[in-house]
Simulated scan of single mutants.
Amino acid sequence: MKLITLNESTLSENKLLKRLFIESKEHFFKIEGREPLAPLVDINKVIPEIPKEACHCLSIYYFEQLIGYLWVFDDSPTSFYILHFYISEQYRNLGFGKLALRELENSYYNQQLKTAELVVSGVNFVGLKFWQSVGFDKIIDVYKPDEIGSFSTELELQKNYSFHEKDIVLLLPFERVNNLSRSELILSEKQTDATFALSVPEAIKEASKNLTMISYLICLNNEVVGYTSLAFDETDLKSENRNWLCQYTIKKSDRSKAYAEKVMPIIINHFLHRGVPDITLSINASNEQAKDFYQKFGFVHVGHQGVNKILMKKILF
């Protein structure tokens, strides 16, 4: 099941879309000094020079929750132009904007998509950083203040498409995406026998009990493919094993797709960003497949935990 979907906006959504518009007005007035493009507006009254039939207002959904909207213009058979793009403040910094853009791009791939363009304010540093991160890295025009209705210099950016876009891997914290708690991940027999093997709802419940544990859903290219739990026990100053990869599970149906290999570097970077010196984990002593997997990412056998488990550690710095 996809986390983010795009649907043509309808009048039945008007009340919710209006709330998003009111929120976005405050955002864009503060940053750019202009009013954003409203949802479901008669586009030719705002931009008379572009054909109405080539413009689409799309609602952005996180499962059943409307979290944003965008306007897109079919600029040519091989290019689209983003006229407006907004994600509600409470759903930012989760990667949902990247997923929404990827869904938009996917809808154009059958048309041999080559380029996409948009305009962003030169003082909108958050927006500039976001658009650059998703490939809009070419400046094709510069507009002076008030030339197109803004109090700042505007940059027209372009993205050129290749056949192979990079995978989007996200770690989504359970406490911010709790309506995903209904998701179940099927475990292998070896994982079911392991001490920490949990379903997603069980993992959420367990994480809420443990103040040192942070649990995440793993999303790869807009699909939930697994979950992970990380622990940082900063209160135990004596222990050399304070930073744990407690749980790392990929859906059984996805294990043949090498998803675990794609996600593991993201998890390691998560520890690096916390500034911790190492990562510890434990696995069943008989699980040679898991041992080989973690060794590929620099984990080494450092001891035993109880009778049936071994400890592995990766030194970060």
Rank of each mutant, 00 (worst) to 15 (best):
A285I: 09
D254R: 08
Q289N: 13
N269M: 04
I186E: 13
F317P: 05
N287T: 07
T249N: 08
R255M: 09
N308E: 02
E234V: 14
V276S: 08
D233I: 10
L58F: 10
D146K: 14
I60N: 01
S253Q: 03
V177Y: 01
I148C: 04
P201H: 06
E206L: 03
G306Y: 03
K144H: 14
M312S: 03
D75S: 15
E206M: 02
L118E: 01
V46A: 00
A260Q: 03
A260P: 01
S199G: 08
E13A: 05
R176Q: 15
S282D: 15
R19M: 14
N14R: 12
K25N: 14
P48H: 04
S59V: 02
N243L: 01
S188A: 05
I310G: 00
N106L: 11
L316T: 05
T280N: 09
V307H: 15
P173W: 05
M1T: 10
Y143A: 09
Q112R: 12
K129L: 10
S24P: 02
V177I: 11
K252S: 10
H273L: 13
G135E: 08
L83K: 05
L245A: 00
K98V: 12
F136A: 00
V300M: 13
V302F: 04
T78L: 14
E32I: 08
I47M: 09
Y61I: 09
N222H: 05
I315G: 04
G122R: 00
L311Q: 01
N124Q: 05
M264E: 01
